[in-house]
Design a protein around this nucleic acid. Structure first.
Length: 466
RNA sequence: GGCGGAGUAGCCAAGUGGUAAGGCAAUGGUUUGCAAAACCGUCAUUCGAGGGUUCGAUUCCCUCCUCCGCCUCCA
């Protein structure tokens, strides 16, 4: 497949550099609270990338870290009166539960920063030895940006802007560490009173690792010096990924990531998501409003990953209808297949266009459209042709990570006796053609939250959709 | 101020130098006692504004307007 690469700003073919397995790294969550749907836009798109590669027959190695030590995790664990580990473990578990609901494939490896302190120290030592890093008086270690000529290539910063950054930093006077150049970034943070129990011994004294270094060290540990693709939200381009490149290329030599995959931020109601605006949605919030995780996933893949996506509650409701329509189409197609049909088809049939969309810069919205048009094309098919079409349809669904809703089964729903009685009374009224009475009783059922649908022989009851 | 991205129907959104996918909503019809559901239709002479290049531009170029992200550890 072809994918846009942030560094070269071109579309490139994705092929494993080792010839067999596509190895990629995704910057994972900082576990200090519930992940929101903006976070999940990134993780879902990374998941679709992996699924698309695998659907195309490629083997993958997916590494995604957990950031379990930084300013926020330390601060909030102290606020919660918990140890850092107990605190981050709780949020990590919640994150995993959300991921599962969203149909995200678990990464093959999910390393945490705290468990990789030795690797991080080793990398810092290498950088110091090579002259790319220096220790300061307070026991911190900084990366010397001037020692890496390639700095700024990913985010297109030139020296002038870096200098500007320095003056801004100098003016803000908020930096509490001692560095040579204000653009230099921290690799190891010397212990401070605020850190509480959260410090580790190192050649430069007690302290803790810097955020940027964590990813570089774990990438080297699990993917080596060079690997196929690195991914994260656009906000990570600078400084996080820029810094990773500097650290890793100086410590390891050679090329770091062959491709960079950045996902644009989600907008909510046309603007930035924030707690103060009350539009910071989590899966739990949306579940309370009656929306499933799969509906959220459908909305999140509804726009191209490099374009802003405007998330609204209305679009979630639309997603429910769209998913139901897909499920209906799939059932229709399945009903046209004879009992003896076997599927060995690697074709996508009417869904070829959807597959092509996915393979052209991961055009998920195009693929979604292709699902509907393909279904329309396939509606006249039967037997082996219908079976082949359905197989293609299911492969696209798998690549997108969509699970279709089942039919709502009435018998699995608990209907109160009073509602059942009311419905029965109305049914009798209707059978005796007492329309006025019948309509009144139906209105009463609706008031009580149930929709009564009349069939020929019997009726059904469903909760009123909000 | 610097860098980057976006403006396509009521909403969410694909796409392309050759005349605008798809979904939601809306709406007409069939069906229904009436509804709901289902099924069959309809729904952008137009792609932020104005110029330019071209046989032809929403797609390329220029100017302008609006919105968004990043510019010290936010996906």
């Amino acid at each position: 497949m072809r994918l846009f690469d942030t560094l070269s700003r071109t579309e490139r073919d994705l092929r494993p550099i080792d010839g067999s397995t596509f190895r990629f790294y995704c910057c994972g969550p900082t576990v200090y609270g519930p992940a929101h749907i903006g976070n999940f836009r990134t993780f879902v798109l990374q998941d679709v990338l992996r699924r698309t590669l695998e659907t195309g027959g490629m083997r993958t190695l997916h590494v995604r870290n957990i950031t379990d030590v930084d300013d926020k995790t330390i601060r909030d664990s102290q606020k919660a009166g918990k140890s850092l580990t107990a605190f981050t473990t709780g949020w990590t578990e919640k994150f995993h539960a959300d991921c599962e609901k969203l149909g995200l494939l678990p990464p093959h490896i999910e390393p945490g920063a705290v468990e990789h302190i030795p690797q991080q120290i080793a990398m810092i030592q290498t950088l110091v030895e090579k002259g790319n890093a220096y220790a300061s008086d307070d026991g911190s270690v900084y990366f010397k940006i001037s020692s890496f000529p390639g700095y700024g290539r990913l985010s297109r910063l030139d020296q002038r802007e870096l200098d500007l950054g320095k003056t801004q930093n100098a003016r803000s006077n908020s930096d509490e560490y001692e560095k040579d150049s204000l653009s230099d970034f921290v690799l190891w943070k010397g212990r401070k009173p605020d850190d509480g129990d959260n410090f580790w011994p190192s050649p430069w004294g007690e302290g803790r690792p810097g955020w940027h270094l964590e990813c570089s060290a774990m990438i080297q540990e699990y993917l080596g010096d060079s690997f196929d693709l690195h991914s994260g939200g656009v906000d990570l381009v600078f400084p996080h990924h820029e810094n990773e490149i500097a650290q890793s290329e100086c410590a390891c030599g050679g090329h770091f990531a062959a491709n960079w995959f950045h996902i644009t931020h989600l907008l909510v109601d046309g603007g930035k998501m924030s707690k103060s605006l009350g539009n910071l949605h989590t899966l739990a919030d949306l579940a309370e409003k009656g929306h499933t995780a799969m509906e959220v996933r459908y909305v999140l893949i509804g726009a191209h990953y490099r374009k802003p996506l405007n998330f609204t509650l209305d679009s979630l409701s639309g997603a429910r209808e769209a998913l139901a329509k897909l499920a209906k189409g799939a059932r229709h197609l399945a009903s046209k297949i004879g009992p003896e049909v076997t599927l060995a088809n690697a074709d996508f049939g009417p869904f070829q266009a959807a597959w092509d969309s996915l393979n052209h810069d991961l055009n998920t919205s195009g693929a979604l459209g292709g699902l509907f048009t393909g279904l329309r094309e396939a509606s006249g098919l039967s037997g082996a042709e219908a079976a082949a079409a359905l197989a293609g349809f299911n492969r696209i669904l798998r690549a997108l990570g969509i699970t279709l809703p089942e039919d709502a089964h009435q018998d699995t729903m608990e209907i109160p006796e009073s509602i059942k009685a009311l419905a029965e009374t109305r049914w009798q009224a209707r059978l005796s053609k007492n329309w006025a009475e019948s309509d009144i009783l139906r209105a009463r059922l609706t008031e009580q939250g149930w929709t009564m649908k009349d069939g020929k022989e019997s009726y059904t009851l469903e909760p009123v959709q909000s």
